[in-house]
Amino acid sequence: MSSSLAPECNEVKERYDSCFLKWYSEKYLRGKGTTDECAALFKDYKHCLTRALKERGIDRMLEEAREGSRENDAANLRRKC
């Protein structure tokens, strides 16, 4: 799996990524993946990553980018009619 931009987050990221990939291939793609079993692992990883993004000033850049990506949601998260 790929590394984190923050080396101190690599271990928790690795654990989360492995969990996600298993869930994605074995459950989600087979229509059995509504609940997120990896949520607890993601929380640990996110905690570590959030601090790293803040330290590097990337959190502010992300906020701006999110503003601009709203229209993508409208186009790609369409409800079934």
């Binding site: 790929s2 590394s3 984190s4 931009l5 923050a6 987050c9 990221k13 989360y16 990524d17 996600f20 989600y28 993946g33 509504t34 997120d36 993601f42 990883y45 990553l49 992300l62 998260l77 369409r78 409800r79 079934k80």
Partner: peptide, 14 residues
């Protein structure tokens, strides 16, 4: 050199 996941969820409607 790095790929980080920032957020992830399954949309309940779709």
């Amino acid at each position: 050199i790095a790929v980080d996941t920032l957020s992830r969820h399954v949309d309940p409607d779709t």
